[in-house]
Design a binder for these strands. Structure first.
Lengths: 362, 362
DNA sequence: GTAACAATGGGATACGGTTTCCGGACCCTG
DNA sequence: CAGGGTCCGGAAACCGTATCCCATTGTTAC
């Protein structure tokens, strides 16, 4: 007895079903659908009619197994609700869609285990590239870990792209899309210094986070350039969130620390800092100036609107995808020289209303 | 000459390579890896060693073609940068990961064309479910369109889930996860009314958006319950964004409209409204009260912190995934009765600091 | 000592397409 | 009308994995 499909099968229609019903061969249907082979108008009509009747779509798995298939790019992100990351994801996704590529999103939750699991999962999926988003923790093993990922993906015909974190050392097959993090911090701090501020509370972020390190060193360079001493007691590390901004400023006020401005590591931290100042009866910017970093929509929605550093997140996403697509078009030709690509995008200060010259010494 | 792999092939290692190198059969390797068949310890060791040496991972496409494979859920979203949507996505993604499922994300950008293309793309991928996020525009063809999606996905063994929009009419194979939108609006408006406000500016959102319709009718019901006339001139429609909030309030002030409170359709709109009031020299909440809707992080980061309606977005995401997973476990058994599932989650008012009783009549 | 049985490895096949290789039909031209 | 070239349709060989079925080996019971 035949084991092949019963007539009233509920499963998905196959290309064979289409061929049979249209009275043509399987190959013909495939050719009509992929369109890379000349077919008669008559055949095309016959096939397309059946395709519509059956509401047939090709099986992506079978197609990609047979060599074809749409390229897919995987986006790995710490936390999808972070505004900055969301914009990068939007950039990648938009550029991917434009080319007919598909995009997958995975959340690591800052957990190295999950990160590893996800990279392997993506490798199984045969993705064209894995885009890793956000600052990295600068542990010793970090470089080794990423290098392993890079080589592993490369061996599988995929590619690793690091966005918003420093490039890997040595000849590792990975692409980095970065922004001038330190330069932005330098400019932001200079803005504060040139307005006359000398006592600045700095909330750079977690000490181990590469992003925070860059922002801190940029600020320090600006202080040195202005000949203003940079005091360790004025630096408070902590996570990039609202609560940290609020708590850190509250603490400093209770400690009686003397400052006329706050240089926050991100806009969200700045929002927390602003709230804490208000709670203590201080006005922004009359009593204390505040600046942020990232220029997410929140920055222009606060009162007063926040002076901050614009980071081209969405463009970074687009650039990242373009880099991958180019490398794929280019084929294996320049594979060799393409190791360790590093693209850096510019940042700039966006002046709004949260900075004023300091009030005369109390 | 053999066309099969050269020895130094750069491509991805296959299960055959592993089998050959370990001196065992392909079937054995598969069994060791999937672990659903007894194998001797000796065999397992041999195979695993080669797997590590070759850094082999199975080909997900081939696996899913052969019947196995990890289920995948697709999330279709208007705009990934919207905070509310991002939280739903987080809920879905988290719950998916917990079960070892994979999640895909696609952006529709409010374009029906792209929506259709994405649904078909997902159908090709053989996803277990397609989750459609966010309020819908209530055009005539909307119901037909969604019903077509639902049936199309159902026929392919997939399933449509609508999150944050009203359920489909009739016996359509789709699941809806919704929140008590109108109830939240009713409670929010009541809060304002019981504080003594009688002249309330309402910014519900786009008139055609189902979400806005629900919020508006909830507010209207509250006014009726309080015996307060609900005037059409006090309602201003517009998109759910900061700019609309700012512009609408600015306009009303210029028009000399008399109001003591603003009932905004979303927190972001409320933020814009607040900024416009400030720009006009009015204080919040001393001169004008403001309330929002959604309870995204922004609500508690504004000054003053915003009284708003909490919507359990992340939980809705989790619930949506659970519904799909349950249906899949349950198998075809209750397929029939499962048509038109509709789950509704509760909302509640979060009281913060943006509401005060109105000042005595000027 | 042999038969029956459990444990385990190997070969073959199916999954749903794409693509190559051929053979046959059609059309144009001399 | 015959010959040759152009095109298109059909059969079959993969793509990489899971699984069904059978063969082999070692073990236990009679």
């Amino acid at each position: 007895m035949s084991q092949r499909k019963a007539s009233g099968d509920v499963g998905r229609a196959t290309i064979r079903d289409v061929a049979e019903r249209a009275g043509v061969s399987v190959a013909s249907v495939s050719r009509v659908l992929s369109g890379n082979y000349p077919v008669s108008e008559d055949l095309r009509r016959k096939v397309m009619k059946v395709v519509r009747d059956l509401d047939y779509v090709t099986n992506a798995h079978a197609r990609s197994l047979a060599g074809g298939g749409t390229p897919t790019v995987a986006i790995l992100i710490n936390n999808i609700t972070g505004a900055a990351f969301a914009h990068v994801a939007k950039g990648v996704e938009g550029a991917a869609t434009l080319r007919g590529w598909l995009s997958l999103v995975g959340t690591t939750g800052d957990d190295p285990e999950r990160e590893l699991a996800l990279v392997n999962l993506m490798r199984q999926q045969g993705v064209a590239a894995v885009v890793l988003l956000g600052g990295a923790y600068d542990y010793d093993e970090y470089q080794l870990r990423m290098a392993r990922f890079a080589r592993s993906l490369d061996a599988a015909g995929s590619h690793l792209v690091l966005v918003g974190r420093p490039p890997l050392e040595g000849a590792v097959p990975a692409t980095t899309v970065d922004y001038d993090n330190e330069g932005g911090a330098y400019a932001m701090a200079s803005h504060l210094l040139s307005a006359g501020h000398r006592k600045v509370l700095v909330l750079p972020g977690h000490a181990e986070l590469t992003t925070a390190q860059g922002r801190l060193s940029g600020a320090r360079r600006a202080f040195e350039a202005y000949g203003v001493p940079f005091e360790a007691t004025m630096v408070r590390h902590g996570p990039y969130d609202y609560e940290h901004g609020y708590a850190a400023v509250g603490e400093c006020l209770r400690d009686g620390l003397d400052f006329t401005a706050v240089l926050a590591g991100t806009d969200v931290v700045a929002a927390g800092a602003m709230q804490a100042l208000r709670a203590a009866g201080l006005r922004v910017p009359e009593d204390v100036s505040i600046v942020g970093y990232d220029d997410i929509p929140l920055a222009s929605q606060l009162t007063p609107q926040l002076t901050t550093v614009h980071v081209p997140y969405e463009e970074m996403g687009r650039v990242a995808l373009r880099a991958v697509a180019d490398r794929r078009e280019g084929g294996g030709a320049r594979r060799k020289g393409a190791d360790g690509d590093h693209l850096v995008l510019g940042t700039h200060v966006v002046v709004r209303h949260s900075v004023r010259p300091p009030a005369p010494p109390r």
